[in-house]
Each structure stands twice: as structure tokens, then as C-alpha cells.
Amino acid sequence: MNHQQQSQRLHKVQLARPDDFDGWRRLARQHLAAGSVPESIIWEFGGGTADLFGEQVAPASPAAASNPQRTGQVPVVPRRFLELARCVACHRTPDRFALLYRVLWRASHGEPGLLDLPSDPDMHRLHRLGKCVARERHKMHAFVRFRQTPEVEPEHFSAWFEPEHHTLRLSSDFFVRRFANMHWSIVTPDESAHWNGQSLQFGPGGHRNKGAAPEAMEQLWKTYFANIFNPARLKLDAMRSEMPVKYWKNLPEAPLIAELVHNAGARSQAMVDSLPSEPPRFASRATAARATRHPTPSESIEHGRKSRISDERSESD
């Protein structure tokens, strides 16, 4: 096959997975060297063919390769671009690999500064896609919620998460660094990741386990969530823009939001309206004790606290 044929005919290129950046990179390099024009490549992934890497690509002739302007010698790609491309590869938009290839092609065919030009429409789109993925990765770091698997030794934790893009692999390094000494699994609809304290394995996707009983610890987390909220400062839009509703179904604290919001007005109004009250009985003694550097009369404080806490309990139980 001569160079002319290689660049014109249609190539179906098979990647191993929908987020197979390394595969794309290797094949893109081959096709670039062979001079395959962007319109001639169809990038496919996850098709399950035996030959994951598709056809062999013929190298460009030495003569052609010596003229990078015409045939696309593989350009020197800045590390920044590779990081961006790694993210873009995880986006669900169908033409992500084609777009990446087109940009590389242009950069090696007369537009050497392109990869550093964020105002170019193709680069602009890449940055937008990359930003979506980076955001999703960040939200995954934030919103994955582990539950302890009951009665398993050593401790095992698992989480169900539905990422908008293919960010499981991209984000799993973070979980390894953070929870290196824990055994854990993160299951998504597409794929799952499992860490046993030594190595990270990827397996098939799964389903949301609707029936799972909530852990006791979730109740404590919800207690915290409800009480750290200041009802006098309601700002729902700020909350929703940072924690979009699409994540709520897998956040144990989210079911509280509606009622917290519903009660907020009345609670803060009650604080504004309430008349100042008499200081509690222990106040003067505690202040006096401080002045004379005696320890706080802790029994009386203990006593005051117990009666209050039992009030709390009767109302909340």
C-alpha cells in the first residue's frame, strides 16, 4: 500500500474501551506518521472485536516523512496538551477521539502553535470538554460515599456512583492514595474498581442496590449536615450550582434538604423575634470561678446539660 492509498481510504480504528486514551495515543501516532487524513478515520470503542488495535498502519515513506508540512510528522506535544487529551478521552461526546486527532493533524500540518492557542474553535471545544471531565472527576472525588460492608474482615467499604463521563479510572488514583490501607470498591454502571490494599482491579459495571439498609454512620452524617446549616443564610442556588441535583440520589444527606429549606424561614425568624432571656444559673458562678482561677463548677454544668439533653431526646426520638 503506498502512501497515497493509506491517507485516502477509510480506516476503522478499534479502541479497547470508551476512555482508552493510551490506545488512542498509540494509534494516532501511527496514523499521523502514515499521513491518514482526519476525515478518513472512524474511531470505535468497546466493540469487543478480538483485534483490539485494528489494522496495521503502514508507515509513511521516508521521503514523505521528511516533509512534515505535507505528511504529518508526529509533532512534539506539550505535556499540558496530553493531560487535556487524557481528560477529553473520558468525555461521552461521540466525536472526542476524532476531534483530538484533527487537532494533532492540524498542529503538524502548518499550524505549529495550535496546541497553545485556546482561542481556536477546535482548541476551545477541547478545553470545554476537558473542563467538563475534570469537573466530573472532582465531583466524583467529592461525592462518592462509601458504606462499610457489614461483617467482613478486614474492613471493606463500597460505593455506588453514576458518573456523567467515563471518569472511574481517571479518579481511582485519588482513592488509592487516600484510602491505601482500606479495602474498597467503587461500582458504576459501566465498570467497577476494586482495591485490596495492594492492587487496583477493574471489573464489570453493576446496579444500584436500592434495598441496602443505611448504615448507622449515615445517621450521624445527616445529623451533622442538618446542624451545620445556618437557616438564616438560605442560598439554594449556590448550593445547587455546586452540588447539582443529578448527584442527590446517591447522597445520604440529600433527602434532608427539602425540609431544612422548608423550615429555614420560621427558624431564623424565631431567632430574630425571641426576646433575650435570663442567663442560665451556672453563668455567674462560672464567670466568678474564672475570675478567681478556680476550676469551673462542673457538677452544676453537668446537671444543666443533662436536663437539656434529655429534653432534646424526648423531642427528637
Partner: peptide, 16 residues
């Protein structure tokens, strides 16, 4: 772990 940039794990209805 700490990675330089902090992470907000949730948001209260006060937007914080």
C-alpha cells in the same frame, strides 16, 4: 491524603 486543592464533599442549603 491532601492534594493541594481542597474538596467540598457536600453543600448545605446555605450554599456553603
Amino acid at each position: 491524603s491532601t492534594e493541594g486543592m481542597g474538596i467540598c464533599h457536600s453543600y448545605a442549603p446555605d450554599g456553603r
